[in-house]
């Protein structure tokens, strides 16, 4: 099993619903976030283009954050989900330094936190909160090993990219372009 997410930049409207939904679902404190939206504007009026991306931890296949963690707090569970065990985390910040996507933050309670792919929902068969709320349905989540999953299907039919592939982390969030 290999969970992954695809983000359709052609449909995302940058509304940030995925951000609030994550906040209320996962008790992310105000002022912090596990996902966020980037808007890239390119061109000169009136020939302009926008790319909107909903970003979060990439649950990298080759995850430097897990490797550099001195206590094993950062670890990988079934489906390639990268998690942090709060009780094991000493808050050394190494994983934050190691992430090319700035996907982690230091929780005000001391431990490091980040997107969990809503593992608590996914293991019950639900979609992650951000995916379930997105009004444009531009987030696709599922198992890459299952050719019929939403994410496999959409990746089969669309062009996509990942972020900073040269960082060598083998990220598992795909951006449909």
């Amino acid at each position: 099993m290999r969970y992954a997410m695809a983000v359709d930049t052609k449909k995302c409207v940058g509304c940030s619903d995925c951000v609030v939904a994550c906040q209320t679902e996962n008790n992310v404190p105000i002022g912090y976030c596990r996902d966020w939206i980037v808007e890239n504007v390119d061109g000169t009026y009136p020939n302009v283009e926008i790319e909107l991306r909903s970003e979060r931890c990439n649950h990298c296949d080759n995850s430097p954050c897990v490797r550099c963690c001195p206590t094993g707090a950062s670890h990988i569970v079934e489906g390639g989900i990268v998690l942090v065990t709060h009780e094991k985390c000493i808050g050394c910040g190494a994983c934050i330094q190691s992430c090319p996507y700035d996907a982690r933050y230091s929780h005000p309670d001391g431990y490091v936190d980040k997107c969990t792919f809503c593992e608590h929902r996914v293991k019950k068969g639900d979609q992650p909160a951000c995916v379930a709320v997105c009004p444009t349905k531009c987030l696709y989540f599922g198992d890459l090993d299952d050719p019929y999953s939403d994410v496999s299907q959409v990746l089969k039919h669309r062009k996509f990219k990942v972020l900073a592939p040269e960082a060598g982390t083998n990220p598992q969030i795909y951006f449909l372009t």
């Binding site: 509304c15 951000v19 609030v20 009004p135 349905k137």
Partner: peptide, 9 residues
């Protein structure tokens, strides 16, 4: 089944 960001907030 999908509220907008304001409704979610």
């Amino acid at each position: 089944g999908r509220l907008c960001p304001r409704g979610t907030g």
